[in-house]
Design a protein around this nucleic acid. Sequence first.
DNA 1: ATCGGAACGGAACATCCGTTCCGATTCACT
DNA 2: AGTGAATCGGAACGGATGTTCCGTTCCGAT
Lengths: 220, 220
Amino acid sequence: MPSSTPASPPDRDAAALPGRQREARANDTAILVAARAVFAAQGHGAAMSDVAREAGVGVGSVYRRYPTKEALVEALHTHGVQEAARLARRVADEVAPGAVVRFVACQISTATGPLLRPTGATTPIPPDLARASDELHEALETLVAQDVRAGVVPAGLTAADVMQLLLHLRPTLPLPRAQADALHLRYLDLVDAGMRAQASAGVVLEGGPAWDEWVGTWHD
Amino acid sequence: MPSSTPASPPDRDAAALPGRQREARANDTAILVAARAVFAAQGHGAAMSDVAREAGVGVGSVYRRYPTKEALVEALHTHGVQEAARLARRVADEVAPGAVVRFVACQISTATGPLLRPTGATTPIPPDLARASDELHEALETLVAQDVRAGVVPAGLTAADVMQLLLHLRPTLPLPRAQADALHLRYLDLVDAGMRAQASAGVVLEGGPAWDEWVGTWHD
DNA sequence: ATCGGAACGGAACATCCGTTCCGATTCACT
DNA sequence: AGTGAATCGGAACGGATGTTCCGTTCCGAT
């Protein structure tokens, strides 16, 4: 019995686990991957049975991991925010002008479908998500501060503005991926030009959205 | 009997119609208005019974006008495109620099909720919509041409780009209307600055989206 | 005043989907 | 091998929602 490790959340690497639990763990990630794909393709309205089929398991197995559909969506959401936070941190570490735009561009070409939470999800924000959100927030602040100093984005730009940008540049059209990406990059160029213009004109933005508005209020 | 006028689509003004049909017509617009309000508030997932209740009629009456929910949504969509076309035409007639941004700004503060078609609506595009779309297209081209001449938007900008802009500036957050509008205007400023910068830098955009991509491919 | 039919409202129906439940299956341990 | 517990898959349940159907209401013509 694994009473030696008191880690209540079973530790990361599932490589070596008592036989049966490995399968469970494998199923777990399979479900996550499948859910991401299905929800990306069909939106959050997709049926749980579709997710189960895509993952090659029964619906029962899905519900064993995630007590409800909303929980599954939320897990996906948290995961997405964590990834975004990692990316932001990495870009911030490069310390080069244009970090904001670079982050957004990367995020666009990376993020698979909607990592957002459906409206009306009034569930209290789970700790994991809150933590990931904080990390993302901090990393974005760094990013923005760097670019403000570099003079490529106007002062007063907030981390929430960047999220807004990201939301707007999310695939919203049933277009082939490549085409959608091209559109978004074209659009991002525009915004980049705008931010640089405002920055060099000495514009100071005001009344930007607050970060707190963003946590847990996304939808698709 | 009204056999004198062969107009198969009963003419516009419903003011004077044989008694009972007036009520029908009144109900018809009531349904449209109600549907717009309900769908705007709850998204296209709202129940038909809600629309009926909001309109103060029974579900049966809704289904008499619109054989299916999709038909109702489509009617709304067509209506929205028609309004957008009218607005675009009006702005174009003013012939003043900044027409594109002005159009988008107006459209943002005007358009109530989603006037877009749900994904996967594979129904053939109805003639009304096709016509409205053509009118919108033409008006936007005029708008863009004016602004390109005025040097406030870069050459190569297409009518479809403007639609893209519009789509991005659509309310996507469950924020109070005023707040959302403020955000969008802030964002529009950015894009405006970007377009002006690109224009005066002599940038010529390429590979813009084609208009045809846009007709009938919107969703919410 | 009476009649016919157009329009109405809402109960009833069918379907879809989230969720629950349970018998079958599989693995660890003896 | 045999046993038991954990896990699995999917049928069954319940609620919500799109759609149909029909008895009722109301207006205009006779």
